[in-house]
């Protein structure tokens, strides 16, 4: 059986089956598309819980507001980096984009934890309540990750592992941001640990599956 080794014949064959394609939207536009779903979920949560509990908590403990800002920015930048890295030829340096907001997120959450330690009067989440946070973050991350993977796969991720980690980070950060709206507790060690564990689980699950889900 003769194999068509010649590059020319392959080029001729590919040209013969050429059809017009719609160019992929720029990464920032695609990021906005994904964020639209996150905003829609946030609106539903606000409609149910209102914004007062969140604002009261933030007024009492400004570091929680900084942590929330860090989480939101981490979700935005990680998703933007994932969409950008899924386009061939874009610099790997994009992978560092979510690092500064992630440091703000982790740093401010850690500060909250320290403050609780210094002022033991604040309301601290029990292990059971922390488990609820864990379930919330993981449960919201699954559909958000699935949508992000589906959108990213429409491009051509040539670095599936890095892209999958960014997808996981974006989804986990978005879920943690959403949790802020209906989160009744202050940041304590147990709560912070639960968040870290949930984020770690989401990032690790995406990385583990990323090779197969995102390879093209």
């Amino acid at each position: 059986m003769a194999e068509p080794r010649s590059n020319d014949s392959l080029i001729a064959a590919l040209s013969a089956e050429l059809v017009p394609v719609r160019r992929l939207l720029p990464p920032w536009r695609r990021t906005l598309g994904w964020l639209a779903l996150v905003v829609a979920i946030a609106m539903l949560l606000f409609a149910h819980y209102g914004d007062q509990p969140m604002l009261r908590r933030w007024a009492g403990a400004p570091d929680l507001a900084w942590a929330a800002l860090g989480a939101v920015l981490t979700a935005v930048t990680a998703a933007w980096a994932a969409f950008t890295l899924a386009v061939p030829g874009r610099s790997r340096a994009w992978g560092w984009l979510p690092l500064p907001p992630a440091l703000l997120w982790i740093g401010a959450s850690g500060l909250g934890c320290l403050r609780t330690w210094l002022a033991p009067g604040t309301s601290i989440a029990t292990l059971h309540q922390s488990a609820d946070c864990f379930v919330f973050i993981v449960a919201f991350s699954i559909p958000l990750s699935a949508l992000l993977v589906w959108l990213v796969r429409r491009a051509c991720p040539l670095r599936p592992l890095l892209t999958a980690m960014l997808v996981g980070l974006a989804s986990a950060a978005a879920s943690a941001s959403l949790l802020e709206i209906c989160h009744a507790y202050d940041a304590a060690a147990t709560d912070l640990f639960t968040h870290a564990l949930a984020v770690g689980v989401v990032v690790a699950a995406n990385s583990a599956m990323g090779g197969r889900l995102l390879s093209r």
Partner: peptide, 12 residues
């Protein structure tokens, strides 16, 4: 070439 054909919509 086959990959280029499949992902040609990603070229900006």
């Amino acid at each position: 070439l086959l990959t280029v054909h499949r992902v040609r919509h990603t070229y900006d």
